[in-house]
Nucleic acid binder design. Structure first.
Length: 433
RNA sequence: GGAAGGGUGGCUGAGUGGUUAAAGGCACCUGACUCGAAAUCAGGAGAUGGGGCAACCCAUCCGGGGGUUCGAAUCCCUCCCCUUCCGCCA
């Protein structure tokens, strides 16, 4: 959520910055301005009336104490007429405020000044590359062939169980997935200074609003209800990402400055309806309805937010470096950034079998945007309550990492070589053919 | 699902219609005392929104929402959450 004060004081700035995304906010900004003014006018009038009523009520109390009952009754009658106007104005305030806030929740974050202007993915500047594409002296297979030959994933039975887009990991595939999760959590907790948390996998609607998933992306989430009780529908959702619970851990709190930065990492499965994406890359495990991910979350002061973002990207890159994978880091342009983000780096890993880079991590600083939605604050050195920067990043997504790993490290004999740092967790140095 | 008891400021804990932002205690800040600290004494200190150059002023907030009343932490309705016991269950 943007700062309503900035909308009042610098409307042109807000309009310009929002226009660098996808535009189309003009009408909403104008409506917002009108609602805000209506609310403020009503607030100042009703407060004045309430002030009158408060002092009158005190007088009535005093009169009754002195047993001047007739006078008290006369005053009561006067004040009663104030009550009706107050009630009407209170309704105006509540309505305009609710409408204003609902509108505020639909506006995306403003891009940071350093973000490149652009409309789409093609406009994203590349920041750096690591390594080189794997080369093979045999004909390499793609991950679908590898998974089938080595019985890592049973695509047909996964679909039989839950429909297309759901994976059944089997044997070495299940073990590799589990080893990767363990490897990632160990790395971030022991070497990168994150505190591990294990969140619920079903999350309240208010937390989805808090991170900016809702209201805009409601159609992308799986809603759950209790049994056949439709009245419970719309309150709880399967996680699209662990960001939803973890970023909300301290919602509605005021953290002492000495506790910052807060750094959490969490493993969770992620559930995405991918509505409207049917048929697009549905084969294999590139785009699925459920995948595993280790998420990184930071809560920092505004002063250190961007330094922490750079560090977070480095933490995610380290994963790929240790696994011997080729990747590139790109900086999303204004038109390609997520709703809540002020600045985002994507990390894309090279998948030889696809001949393409696959997004495995997206690291963003949402600045105060999510903190405002969550009413998360911290108390700075001077005792002032301020909104912290809230950052999130994948460290990393698993299904695509799995793809890149097996496609990159496949051997001529059909086996998969396991990179050194992963071996203790898999308790093997290769997946046999 | 059934029964009972609870949700008050950073914590603890009073308050059951009228100077109550809310006693007392703990923690915190300032000052005095001290070489310094502890102890003691005195004082201060909540949040949100709005107004003012400022000292300050106004409104709202005692789990959420609604109602009764001139006036609600206090009475009524409703929802949420927590604790204990019973039932069921991984």
């Amino acid at each position: 959520m943007l700062d309503i004060k900035m909308l009042r004081d610098r409307p042109d700035h807000v309009r310009e910055r929002l226009a660098t995304r996808h535009g189309g906010d003009e009408a909403r900004l104008e409506e917002l301005r009108a609602l805000d003014e209506r609310r403020r006018a009503a607030v100042s009038e009703v407060e004045q009336l309430k002030s009158q009523r408060n002092s009158a009520s005190k007088e009535i109390g005093a009169l009754m104490g002195q047993k001047k009952l007739a006078e008290a009754e006369a005053r009561k009658a006067e004040v009663r007429t104030l009550g009706d106007r107050i009630a009407a104005l209170d309704r105006t305030v509540a309505e305009s405020e609710a409408a204003r806030d609902a509108l505020m929740l639909t506006l995306p974050n403003l891009p940071h000044a350093s973000v490149a202007l652009g409309r789409e993915a093609a406009d994203n500047p590349e920041v750096r590359r690591y390594g080189a594409p794997a080369t093979f002296d045999f004909t390499p297979r793609n991950h679908i062939e590898l998974c089938e030959r080595l019985s890592l994933i049973d695509f047909a039975r996964g679909a039989k169980l839950s429909g297309s887009g759901f994976l059944l990991y089997t044997g070495w595939g299940a073990r590799l997935e589990r080893a990767l999760i363990q490897f990632l959590l160990e790395l971030h907790t022991t070497e990168h200074g994150y505190t591990e948390v294990a969140p619920p996998y079903i999350i309240g609607e208010h937390c989805m609003v808090g991170v900016g998933q809702f209201p805009k992306f409601k159609d992308q989430a799986y809603a759950v209800q209790e049994g056949l009780d439709a009245s419970t529908m719309g309150k709880l959702y399967l996680l699209p990402t662990a960001e939803a619970p973890v970023a909300n851990i301290h919602r509605e709190e005021i953290l002492p400055a000495v506790r910052l930065p807060v750094r959490y990492c969490a493993y969770s499965p992620c559930f995405r309806a991918e509505a409207g994406a049917a048929g697009v890359g549905t084969r294999g495990m590139i785009r699925v309805h459920q995948f595993d991910k280790v998420e990184l979350i930071k809560i920092t002061t505004p002063e250190t937010g961007y330094a922490e973002l750079e560090a977070m990207v480095g933490n995610a890159e380290r994963v790929l470096q240790l696994l011997g994978l080729h990747y590139r880091v790109i900086n999303l342009c204004t038109g390609d950034m997520g709703f809540a983000s002020a600045k985002t780096y994507d990390i894309e890993v090279w998948a030889p079998g696809q001949g393409a880079f696959l997004e495995v991590s997206s690291c963003s600083n949402t600045e105060e945007f999510q903190a405002r939605r969550m009413n998360l604050r911290y108390k700075d050195a001077s005792g002032e309550n301020r909104f912290p920067h809230v950052l999130n990043g994948s460290g990393t997504a698993l299904a695509r990492l799995f793809v890149a790993l097996i496609e990159t490290h496949q051997q001529a004999d059909g086996s998969i070589a396991i990179p050194e740092p992963l071996r203790p967790h898999l308790r093997a140095d290769r997946i046999p053919a």
